[in-house]
Structures are given as structure tokens and as C-alpha cells.
Design a protein around this nucleic acid. Sequence first.
DNA 1: AGACAAAATGTAAACGTTTACATAATACTA
DNA 2: TAGTATTATGTAAACGTTTACATTTTGTCT
Lengths: 338, 338
Amino acid sequence: MTTIKDIARRANVSDATVSRVINNSPNVKPQTREKVNKAIEELNYYPNSLARGMRSKKTHSIGLLLADITNPFYAETAKTIIERAGNHGYSIILCTTNNDISEQQKYIDVLLQRKVDGFIFASVHWKDPSLSAVIEAGLPYVLYNRKTSAYKRSNYVVLDNELGAYLAVEHLYKLGHRRIALIRGPHTFSTGKERSNGYLKALKEFGLSHDEKLIVQGKYSGKESYDSAMKLFNSNKPPTAIFASNDLMALRAYDAALFCGLSVPRDVALVGFDDIEIASHRAIGLTTVSQNRNLMAEIALDTLRKIIENESPQEPAQVVLKPMLTVRETCGSQMKKI
Amino acid sequence: MTTIKDIARRANVSDATVSRVINNSPNVKPQTREKVNKAIEELNYYPNSLARGMRSKKTHSIGLLLADITNPFYAETAKTIIERAGNHGYSIILCTTNNDISEQQKYIDVLLQRKVDGFIFASVHWKDPSLSAVIEAGLPYVLYNRKTSAYKRSNYVVLDNELGAYLAVEHLYKLGHRRIALIRGPHTFSTGKERSNGYLKALKEFGLSHDEKLIVQGKYSGKESYDSAMKLFNSNKPPTAIFASNDLMALRAYDAALFCGLSVPRDVALVGFDDIEIASHRAIGLTTVSQNRNLMAEIALDTLRKIIENESPQEPAQVVLKPMLTVRETCGSQMKKI
DNA sequence: AGACAAAATGTAAACGTTTACATAATACTA
DNA sequence: TAGTATTATGTAAACGTTTACATTTTGTCT
């Protein structure tokens, strides 16, 4: 391993000067800089991040905690974050929690040991004690997509989920649907809760009765939503439309509908949430609540970077983005006459 | 920050003893161990990974380089790797290269500075000089999915892509198809090349003429495959079946077919490669070459871990897994009579 | 040319561990 | 019980940087 000392010896300067060159310190004679760079080149030297971090208390690494990287929503936002971080000299340590708080806790501990400069969470629960370790350590963090009740002064960037859900149901209502079901996401997450709220709000506003039979459970990934949709279709008064709390769930419902021999949208209309890539495929054509994912991820990263680099304990950045409805084929323009 | 010294003082032992406790060294009196653990508990101490890595030359971190995390194939394998690594005390630093060699080179440099214990690559090109830095540094690495010609003695775990493609074309042939097109992946990757080879081999074997007009270009992600499929459909002798080099490309072709008013599989049959999650959705039903992704990712990680932990420079581990064809709806069981 | 300010460089400590080696405590043997 | 082997603990150096401070060099002004 060639170290800063080797360079120093070769260039006939002190370690400190080499360090100055590496760090682009202004006060170094151009001639010296050149000498040092030459030695660096010749010996194929690159600095040791561990030693740097050890001394300077900055590792230029960020912990990113996601529920599930196979959910396209997270994959796409992670991509944005990783690339943007890389462009600014930060590396991303990626951890996936499977929505398990104790997993998250475990990863937070690991990342604290690794001395990350900050955290980005897209994995928090509404009740989530695990952030306390981060806060005690005094490390900056930003939440995206999901908020938590545990720390009101968190930095976050989220969507107006209630509005999104409202728009979805409104659309269905205007198409003539009156029996609109909800496959709700887990209420242990702000997204699940808020989207359910938006659904209920719309029902009330349009004078539709709140029928508990039309509300079924789902998880954001996995097969549960499929079974829940089946339950809806097999009930004695099935819905004419379904709003699902995310696209993955909507796709499961779609799958279940096809299994039941139902046609979408003729027999049942479908709206999802997230606008993942596949939603726009012509074989799917999922109507969905869309959000500017890139923007969300960008804001999350930039906010964190600003906090890390300024160290200024300003007011928490709390951004709420507005969703819009992207209309495709799964709702049709007419509802089936019953 | 509470350090090992604080613990030592509190427990009335030396730093070395604390270190021994932390590292589960055998030679420490149970009573002492308890004393130390108590102090650790009380002061809420956790060791500093940077300092550890600095001294012990092991960071328990692994660099994972992928082309594109939004491709479900990579997302799913990454998930497996991240989780499995976490279970063994390793953290994953994730980098995405967008199939750009210079990006890859850049990330390799960063990861070398960060003193990762090893690399996992699913991003290598067939001609790929960027690994040389890893090899010079003497760090272990494992390739998965793609091989490279640059280093014959690399550890890798890949699929028998040629066989996979052959199976796909064979299936189409047996269904009666004689004009079978290929949307080929970039030949700058082993996967693209090998899958094309399998296609050609099958053509030859079944006595089908090799028609260059039936072979079009695609990239593994992005819209290019859509345009290429359009070209096929708009030609004066369109194919009755298409084999695409991965599922994402097959989905693009599917989309293009629908845009052209073609029915799948009545007007055109479709086979993909990878068997990503959405392929099994009933609205899609993509026939595809499937592989045991979990297995591939598991082997990749376990192989790397073994090398890291044994340090033994054995024979390179070179694993080739066998694919199988998963038949769904996009081929039908009959071809259209022309 | 001399005095002073500014710029460039050097020195050495510090960051928080692990580890080779030395030493002390304990257990075992005859 | 003395002598020895074994186990437990301590000491101090080392890992490769950065940085506060000290020192030297260079430049500016009269």
C-alpha cells in the first residue's frame, strides 16, 4: 500500500503538504502541487478513506434505508439518490428493512458504527422508535415518501397522499361508480393511513355510504392484496371499482379480476398509486395517482447534503408535493350498467 | 463520543481487554467480560468501524456494482445479496453504472479508497479494462450474470444463456413458427452475445434461414427495443414470433405490438428472458426463459465471502446455471395461419 | 535594504481501534 | 510447595490521514 508518506518522500515535501494537495487547499505553490501530483501519478496513489474519515469526522457516505428495493417505486428513487449522491462525492450504503422495525434498528446501529454522515429513510413507520438512536447521535436525516409521528421536527419530503387518494376516488365517482372499494395499505405507515383518509373524505363528500365490506387489507408487496381482491369479487355485492393504495396492489387486484373472468374496466375499474413504470404498458394501462419521483428523491438528497455541509440546525425542511391523476385504460370512460 | 478508553476506565481494565471483549476473544475471564459489558451498556458504547478497519484491514463492506437497479432482475438479485450480506455482518455499498465503463471505473476507484473487502459485479462488459484496478489491488471479486473476456480467471456465476435462447426458439419452432425474429441485446455484454448465439444455433439446427432483416437491436432498458419492434412489424414480411434478449425488451415489443393493433399471441408470439416478477401477471403472461435468480445471487455472495474469509487463492469458482423455459400465454399453443 | 505581512511549508499530535509482545495471575504437576 | 505451563491482562506501537501550530520563505512597501 502506498501512503501519503511515500508520496511525501518522493516529492520531497512533508505529509501535510501532500494532504493539502489532495484536498485542494489554496495555499500551495503551483510548482509544489505539480511535484506532488507527479509523485501521486507515478506511485499510483489513492488516499485511504478510512484514515481520512477517522481524522476529519466526515466519511462522505450516506445510509439509505428502504423497505423493499424490488418495489419499482423504491428502485427508481434509489437510482436517483445513488446517482446524485455519486455526483457529489457521496457513497450510498443501502439497507432494506422489509418493513421490519427491528431490522431497521439493527441497520441504523451498523450505519452509526460506520460513521455515515447522514441518513435517508423511506422505511419509517408511523410509530417508529428506531430513529431515536440517530437523533441521539446528532446525525442529520431526511425522510421521504413516509413520515413518522415519532419526531415532529424531522426533515421530510412526502406526497399529499390524502389528495392523491381523493383524486382517484373522485375520478371513479365522476365516471358513475358508486360502489368503490378500497384495498388499503397498512395503517402503520403514513402513506397507508393518509390514502385511506383521502378515500373516506371523498366518499363523504360525494355522499357515498361508508361500507366496511368494501374496505379490505393489503400489504404494499406480496400476495395479500390478491386475496383481498378475491374477497371483494366473491362477495354478494361486489364493487364496480377499486382504489388500491399502491400500484403493486392494484396489479394484484387486476390479476385477481382476470382470474375471476372479470374484464377491466368493463366489469371493474381500477386505480393505483405511484405510477410505476409498468403502469403505462399498453397491456396494463393502469390509471394511477402519479408523483414526480425524481423530484422527491432529489429533494431528499439535496436537503440532506445541505444539512451535512452547512451543519446549520435550521428549521426542519418539510416538503409536501402535489400528486396528479394519470388516466389510462383501467377505468374506461364509462362504467358498466348494473 | 464514547470510546474504548472510556469503557476501559469505567470497567477498570485496559483498552486491550475491552477490545477482546468486543471481539469475543476467548481468553478473557467471564467476570471481566461481564464488567466490561456492563460499562458498554451503561455508556451506550458502540465501536467505530473506521478505526477498526484502519487497524485490522477489514471493513466488512462489499461493493456491489449494477448496471441499473430499476431493472427488476437486478433489483431482485440485489435484494438477495443485501440481505444475505447483512446476515453475515457485511454492508453493501451500491453503485449503478448505467452500463458506462468509465462510470464503473470511477466507482471502482471510490470503493478501493473506501477499502471494501471485495466486489460483486453484475455490470461488466465483454471487453472491460476496468477490473484491472481491482486485480492490481489484490481484492477478491465475483461476477454474476455477465462474464468478461478480460480476465479468464475471474470468479463468476452465470446462466447458460445460449441454452436459454435455444430453448426459447425451439419452443417457437415447435409451435409452427418459421419467421422468428430476434431483438438482440448489446453484444458488448456476454449475455447479449450468448443469447444471440443460442438463437442462431437453433435456427441452424431447425433448418431455418438466417434472415438479417429479422434481427434488430435493442438495449436492456430504455425505449430502443420498442422502436426496433416497430420496425419489424412495419416491414413487408413481419415475423410471426419474436424472441427478445430480456423481459424488459419483450415487454417493449409487446407494447409496440399492441400499438400496431396486433394481438399477442394471435398475430405475433413473444418470448422474453429473465422471468421478472411482472412476467407472470395475467394481463401479461409472458413466456420467458427463467433462471433461479436467488440462487445466482446467493452463490455470488457466498463465493465472495468465502474468498474474503479464507484468503486462499484457490481455483476460480466458475458456475454456470441451467435455465428453463416458463411457458405462459404470449406464445399461445397455435400459431396464426398465414 | 529593512521591516512587516502574507504565503508556503513543516512538525507533531490526534483520531479510535487492534495486536505483538511483555507481564501478571492462576492452575497444574510432582 | 516450588516450579512450570496456562490463562488473563496490560503496554505501547501502529494503521494513514488531517490539522493546529510553528517556522520558513516570499512578497510588498517605504
